[in-house]
């Protein structure tokens, strides 16, 4: 699909980048099919699949019945039958009905058949809060799927990373949940290569290098972290790591950084208890115990329901909360 004048001039949004990756992968590999609710004619509720049905036809960009378990369960069968399905679940809050098919079936086929049947499957899911959406349109369930073996979990937050990671996900031989932080779907543009490239799953990215404290985040929270860093004194040097992939986790990146800085703060939108912050804190104390100068701090969503949108910004970690945690950890 040719780029528009805006894209050429100002770069691509996250939505544009995902759309471009889908189009290029479908062009490259005729086994790749997109399916889901409203993904065809309408181009998806966020327009991520815009124009794809026109390019590839209704047999490759398929409008399905409104049926999440149906979409995931049939995608497993499509994968068994030699295709590379890329189903979309409209919002992360609607993953519930498909949960069984994802964790008990897609994830398990390779193990339970000792490799005789494998399920290459990329499940695209808009994720997270901050867009004034209705109930169950703003959650962050990445830890739930990371706690289930056999599924890779990816959550890029820039157009560049989204394109490269989506290509990697589609070419991966196993199920991947590809979470798309909807808060940054259209929040900025970035110039990225038009030709395809691959960002390997499982590699974190150092967003800003630093020596005093390691800030670990992913998804839309990375931008709240950047905002927090803007308000810090100039002599404070924070290393910000964007995990990009949640499972498999890039432990090396975290451990190497914390061994250098001795201090760590983890930021995520999801619920605090048993969230990924707990896992990362545990990795840090296992592997950086004698390097630590302060306890690891977590700045997360509360152990509550994600509130309706009038209160969502009170729930989501914001720059002041992150900055406070950084300052307290530095002062410890």
């Amino acid at each position: 699909m040719p780029r528009t004048a805006v894209m050429n001039e100002k770069g691509l949004t996250l939505v544009d980048a995902i759309n471009e990756a889908l189009a290029q992968e479908m062009e490259r590999d005729e086994r790749v099919v997109c399916l889901g609710e409203d993904v065809g004619l309408n181009g998806g509720v966020f327009r991520v699949t815009e124009g794809l049905q026109k390019l590839f036809g209704p047999d490759r960009v398929i409008d399905t019945p409104l049926s999440e378990s149906g979409i995931l369960g049939t995608s497993i069968g499509l994968a068994m039958g030699g295709l590379r399905p890329v189903p979309e679940i409209q919002f992360e809050g609607f993953l519930g009905p498909a949960y069984d098919q994802i964790v008990n079936h897609a994830a398990r086929f390779r193990t339970r058949t000792r490799g005789a049947i494998t399920i290459p499957l990329t499940i695209r899911v808009p994720v997270g809060g901050g867009i004034h959406a209705p109930e169950l349109h703003s959650d962050s369930p990445e830890a739930i799927y990371t706690h289930s073996p056999g599924i890779k979990v990816v959550m890029p937050c820039t157009p560049y990373d989204a394109k490269g990671l989506l290509v990697a996900a589609i070419r991966d031989p196993d199920p991947v949940i590809f979470f798309e932080p909807k808060r940054v779907y259209r929040s900025f543009r970035e110039r990225i290569p038009e030709e395809e490239y691959v960002i390997p799953i499982g590699q974190a990215k150092v967003v800003t290098e630093g020596t005093d404290l390691t800030l670990v985040s992913w998804g839309a929270s990375v931008f709240q972290c950047l905002e927090a860093l803007d308000g810090l004194p100039e002599d404070v040097s924070v290393e910000l790591i964007d995990l990009r992939t949640i499972n498999p986790l890039d432990r090396d990146a975290i451990v190497q950084s914390v061994r250098k800085t001795g201090r760590c703060v983890v930021v995520h939108e999801a619920v605090k208890t048993a969230g990924m912050g707990a896992e990362i804190s545990s990795i840090v104390q296992e592997s950086c115990f004698l390097h630590l100068s302060a306890p690891v701090q977590r700045v997360c969503g509360f152990d509550t329901m994600m509130p309706y949108y009038k209160l969502e910004l009170d729930y989501l970690p914001d720059a002041p909360r992150i900055r406070e945690a950084i300052e307290q950890t530095l002062a410890y």
Binding site: D59, G70, I76, G77, G81
Partner: peptide, 25 residues
């Protein structure tokens, strides 16, 4: 064939997807 399926009814969706793949291909 696919392996025997212990949870109830979940395999029917896999069968549907598999048949769908044969139709598409």
């Amino acid at each position: 064939c696919t392996p025997i399926c212990i949870p109830i009814g979940t395999q029917m969706l896999h069968a549907t997807g598999l048949a769908w793949a044969f139709k598409l291909r």
